[in-house]
Each structure stands twice: as structure tokens, then as C-alpha cells.
């Protein structure tokens, strides 16, 4: 079955791609580039890097710009998926939805309207096991945004390794945040993974941070051989 992955470049959509490739054919990635940094549906930090990630994976990408207006962006998503059907002959969509009924049910409805399959392979995954798997299986995940206490500026650009996960577990217990950032506490970017043919190297970056709210902007990056 030919599938397209809704792709933000964060850990969830990358890991969903990885799982989908083990079962079906991933024909393309689909990225919604939102002009609204507070988008309800679409991850925004460093979304401009998804084309580099697609190049590193060796998978075509369809990028579609949305103004990011609530509910209107769903029509944009439908248009983007329709284009992917035309261009790549996909029969279904894969998402990295973990807990969000808001996201999952809206994408399910779009797929239903377009008569497409819809898969959410991370749905209600055990968050601790999932985060440990990312580390153990060699995913290079960096924090590209923090939006909650107790994250300070040092988290921006930090790789999620065993020490970071140890702290995240402590924070999750103490501050009632989700371990995966599913509650919007943090955003991530993947620079390398076991199925990447090449990796992404960050050349220049800038962090902007105030009051537990910060973004790690990657200004320049390139794809290199592994």
C-alpha cells in the first residue's frame, strides 16, 4: 500500500515514518508550512527543514503553505493530501498522532472524505517506552522549542539522550507534563535516524527564550553523508 506521511520533522512524524516503512511503501512526505506560529494543527519550529530531512531520507516531499487559521487550515490539509494523491498515487495517510483526539479525528475525517486509509501507529503508545526506543534505536532528536515550566534556555538545541530523558521523567512526575511533549510543552527536530540515508548537520542557529517559552531556530543546515 502506498502511503503519504503527514510530516512536521519532529520525533513523532519521523518515528511514524520509520514504522510505516517497515510495513508498507512510504511514497511521499506531506508538510504543511503554517504561517501561524500558534497553529492548532501543525508543528511550526524549523518546519523549513523538512525538505532537508526528506533529502536525508531519500523520500519525496510535498510542501503546502497554509495561513494557519483554525478550521480553514483543515481545508488546506485536505488540498495538500489531494495533491499527494494526484502526484504520488497514495492510498492512505500516516500521522504521528499520540494522544490528540483533536488532531487525529480531524485527519480521520479528511481521509474518510477522500476515501483514504488513515494510520496512527503511535496512537496511545507507552510514552516512556517510546522515548527510550528513540534513544536506543539511534534517533538524533533535538529540542527545537520549549513552551512550559520548568524548561530553561539550556534545553534549546539539546539532544534527547539518556540524561535528558532522566530529567524529563523527573519533570513529568513533578510538574505533570507529558514525557513526549504531547501537551505542547516542547517541540523536537530529528537530524538523523537509523533509516536516514544521510544526516543533517546544523551550521548556524539562534535561540530566543523568555519566561519558559523559547525557540531554537536553525538558520543554516546541510545534508551530509553518514
Amino acid at each position: 500500500m502506498k502511503l503519504g506521511v503527514l510530516f512536521s520533522g519532529g520525533k513523532d512524524s519521523v518515528y511514524a515514518t520509520y514504522l510505516a516503512m517497515q510495513k508498507e511503501e512510504v511514497s511521499c512526505l506531506i508538510s504543511l508550512v503554517s504561517e501561524n506560529c500558534e497553529s492548532y494543527m501543525f508543528h511550526t519550529p524549523n518546519i523549513h527543514l523538512t525538505s532537508l530531512q526528506a533529502e536525508a531520507m531519500g523520500i519525496p516531499i510535498l510542501e503546502y503553505t497554509t495561513k494557519g487559521i483554525e478550521e480553514e487550515e483543515l481545508e488546506d490539509l485536505k488540498q495538500a493530501i489531494s495533491l499527494a494523491v494526484e502526484q504520488y498515487d497514495i492510498e492512505g495517510i500516516v500521522t504521528g498522532a499520540v494522544l490528540s483526539v483533536y488532531q487525529a479525528s480531524r485527519i480521520q475525517k479528511i481521509c474518510d472524505a477522500l476515501s483514504l486509509w488513515c494510520y496512527n501507529p503511535l496512537w496511545h503508545i507507552d510514552q516512556d517506552r517510546y522515548m527510550q526506543s528513540l534513544i536506543d534505536e539511534g534517533f538524533e532528536v533535538i529540542i527545537s522549542g520549549v513552551f512550559s515550566a520548568p524548561f530553561d534556555e539550556t534545553w534549546l538545541g539539546r539532544r534527547i539522550d539518556n540524561e535528558a530523558l532522566r530529567l524529563l521523567r523527573l519533570y513529568a512526575a513533578k510538574y505533570s507534563i507529558t514525557l513526549t511533549g504531547e501537551g505542547g510543552e516542547l517541540e523536537t527536530l530529528v537530524t538523523d535516524a537509523p533509516f536516514f540515508k544521510k544526516k543533517i548537520v546544523v551550521l548556524t542557529s539562534e535561540s530566543v527564550y523568555a519566561n519558559y517559552n523559547g525557540r531554537y531556530h536553525i538558520q543554516t543546515a546541510e545534508v551530509r553523508d553518514k
Partner: peptide, 13 residues
């Protein structure tokens, strides 16, 4: 199938 992760694994958990 890919559906096993979405519909069986959460019940197993």
C-alpha cells in the same frame, strides 16, 4: 499490518 500498532498494542498495554 500497520493497524496492529494502533488498534491492538494499546489494548495489550
Amino acid at each position: 499490518s500497520l493497524g496492529e500498532a494502533e488498534f491492538v498494542r494499546p489494548i495489550a498495554d
